[in-house]
Simulated assay, not measured.
Amino acid sequence: MTRPHVLLSVAVSVDGYIDDASPERLRLSDSADFDRVDQVRADSDAILVGAQTLRSDNPRLLVDSADRRAARLASGKPEYPLKVTVSASGDLDPDLRFWHHGGGKLAYTTDAGAARLTDRLAGLAEVMSLGADLDFGMLLDDLGRRGIARLMVEGGTRVHTTFLAADLADELHLAVAPILVGDVAAPRFLAAADYPGAPHRRMRLADVTRVGDVAVLRYLPKANNADRRIG
């Protein structure tokens, strides 16, 4: 069994925030970068977001381009990637847009969370318990058994932090927007954690691309990529 390739995707301000503290979502990307993200989604077998992102942003999490969806179908894939979320508590509203758009949905949770979610999401999503606690390695093992080869992770802070702290991320797309937020109450890309090798292990910078007014940095975080030359 092979775990999926894990790609973390995030847009941040120059000072490292992923949103401001207002009720409305801060759009850090421009139209060109949103289109780039749509292509990354179309190239993925599954897209994962955390429960807090669902609650705060209420995203549909779709491939917007009809041409890209048609290309997926032509290649024998489902029209949309599998949509995945993670919630330890199981406190997820069945009215969220996530459940009512696109193709298949899968919610990973704990034994306690499954007791809340199984009936709540009946007919909307498959609910899968990872045991007494959330285990992201077990999550990846399960996705691998389901044939997911490429997983795109779109946040939020806790989810990105967990993948990097557990050394489970193969690739990081960091889109840096020319915006300053400067609000300590706003969410940041990552939280404090015991990151492997930090602060001395360097990620490998594989690519830098200008997309509209955004700089997209592609890093390879794992230790076996850190010392390789770009080429």
Rank of each mutant, 00 (worst) to 15 (best):
M1C: 09
V6R: 12
V10E: 13
V12T: 15
S13I: 07
V14K: 14
I18P: 03
D19G: 07
D20L: 06
S22K: 07
E24H: 05
L26V: 04
L28F: 00
A32E: 10
D33I: 06
F34G: 04
D43M: 01
D45Q: 02
L54K: 01
R55D: 01
S56A: 05
N58W: 00
N58K: 03
L61Y: 00
L62D: 00
V63Y: 00
D64E: 04
A74H: 01
K77A: 05
P78D: 08
E79S: 09
E79N: 02
V84W: 01
T85K: 06
V86P: 04
A88F: 00
G90H: 03
G90K: 03
L92F: 08
D93R: 10
K105V: 12
Y108H: 14
T109H: 13
T110G: 12
T110I: 13
G113Y: 14
G113Q: 09
G113V: 14
E126V: 12
S129Y: 06
A132F: 03
D133G: 01
L134Y: 05
L134D: 06
D135G: 07
D135A: 08
F136I: 11
G137V: 06
M138W: 00
M138E: 12
L140I: 11
D142C: 09
D142E: 11
G147T: 03
E154V: 10
G156I: 10
T157H: 05
H160G: 06
H160R: 14
F163V: 07
A166Q: 14
L168Q: 07
L168C: 07
H173N: 13
H173K: 05
L174I: 10
V176A: 13
A177Y: 08
D183M: 04
V184Y: 08
V184C: 04
R188P: 01
L190Y: 06
D194V: 10
P196M: 12
H200C: 05
M203E: 05
L205H: 06
L205C: 13
L205Q: 10
V208Y: 09
T209C: 13
T209F: 12
D213H: 15
Y219F: 15
P221R: 06
A223R: 10
R228S: 11
I230C: 09
G231S: 13
